[in-house]
Write a protein that binds this DNA or RNA. Structure first.
Lengths: 249, 249
DNA sequence: CGCCTTCTTGAGGGTTCTCAAAGTGGGTGG
DNA sequence: CCACCCACTTTGAGAACCCTCAAGAAGGCG
């Protein structure tokens, strides 16, 4: 039952960007799955293996990462409840990256076969999946740009703006008040910083009166200034569809 | 005629990762298009507009970029001949980024409508397009990881390894000897560096005997050492298909 | 109460940036 | 054919940002 909630969230995420009819919605909601639970800090998908299922986050927080020989890692995507971590593994089952649980997490494992069948049967679903992949890529591109050209403080500000909106969208808080269940070391892995410098960047934002934190609870005190510092424009999250397309004719 | 070559290159790129039958191949090769020519340094797609066509690079080199208020830009994808710059714009026509010609470039403009029609009619083509998007995203993730966790020298080494392989794949040289028609400032925009520091990183690789350059011609003298420095593993380019899927049944 | 993880603080060093100017080379016009 | 110009590359010096190493506080859990 709370498992159905996860599929509903996934469907809701798809419907943000794509329109699906009754049949297609039902098809999504009746996807088969198995449930897996993971405590925090577990790499539940190892880098460099072939998978035959995709992971839908039902609860908690997951991160896709790339790891280097020296053990350092970079998190290249954050996945909130309702996000399919590796929809991209459906067309390309060999994944070079791993997925870790950032907090305690419940995940639905959905067989690739079922997702493939749906997208062959329903072109609109194929488009919806493709769109979802594009949206992930758009976030990735934004992160890359920030990583390459902005300071630590600016990147952190940008990430907080993004997470606020995504949390709100997922029904897990508001864009100005949410709980982010990660350690500072994990956030540093997202932003390409050391834990020490992330900590100092957080302090800077607090000192400027832009945010307030209480444990892992974040409150954004000055949205305007934070977005300004980050040059944040939610456009890239692709939240208002693009669906002129998927129907025949 | 040389226009057909571009479509053939695009098809060849798709066939690296997907299998398409005679009909489907013909359909790709008969896509309609218009031709556009651009000199170097032109932003031929402006950030933040809606497009109704996709750009296939026929000749030259193009870069997708994100730009900041201070004018600094980050290139988030490099496109060689045969690459479709913005296949992702087919399902999501509003793009936040721009595309610039890095060198003199010839581009085929292909109406979204035609691409959509193909992917509705041929599920295998829809999968092939989706896969292509996934491959782009995989490169993006790798760049992000490098950007976040590796030094300038290591990132540059990684980029040169990648470009070598992609050049070879596109029939434009070998992985150890190719001509990269970009300025150092543009390469700096790819790697998130300043032009000055990129120049010094290049000098470092030359001094170590790893590469040799002559104008914009690159020769890799010690592939093993260069790949080692970069921790380069071509896996992420997703060059060996994953097509168990697209056929019904 | 004690352990373990996480957060915070400090000091020093290295990579990369900024600013500025000099060298190089290809193209164009006289 | 030479001279000039422009874009690009290279060099230098100093500063800023971020990292490393290390250790001390704080908070959660048994």
């Amino acid at each position: 039952m709370s498992e159905n909630l996860a599929l509903e969230r996934f469907l809701a995420r798809l419907l943000l960007r794509s329109s699906l009819d009754e049949d297609e919605r039902r098809a999504i909601l009746s996807l088969p799955f198995e449930v897996a639970r993971h405590r925090a800090h577990r790499d539940f998908v190892q880098p460099g293996q072939n998978t035959d299922f995709a992971c839908l986050v039902a609860e908690g927080l997951a991160g896709r990462f790339d790891q280097f020989a020296d053990g350092h890692r970079q998190i290249v995507a954050l996945h909130l409840p309702g996000d399919m971590c590796d929809l991209h593994s459906v067309p390309m089952p060999h994944t070079g990256w791993g997925i870790e649980s950032l907090s305690d997490t419940r995940v639905l494992l959905i067989p690739h076969r079922a997702l493939i069948d749906l997208s062959v049967r329903y072109p609109a679903i194929a488009f919806a999946f493709w769109r979802d992949t594009v949206a992930d890529g758009s976030v990735l591109a934004k992160w890359l740009a920030a990583q390459g050209r902005r300071s630590a403080r600016e990147r952190l500000a940008h990430l907080l703006c993004e997470i606020g909106i995504r949390m709100e969208q997922a029904g897990l808080g508001s864009r100005e008040h949410f709980t982010l269940r990660t350690t500072q070391a994990q956030l540093a892995d997202v932003l390409g910083l050391t834990a020490v410098h992330l900590n100092r960047s957080l302090q800077a934002l607090r000192a400027e009166g832009l945010i307030e934190t209480n444990g892992r609870e974040f409150r954004i005190l000055d949205t305007h200034a934070l977005c300004g510092l980050a040059e944040f424009d939610p456009e890239y999250l692709l939240l208002h569809g693009g669906d002129r397309t998927s129907r025949r004719g």
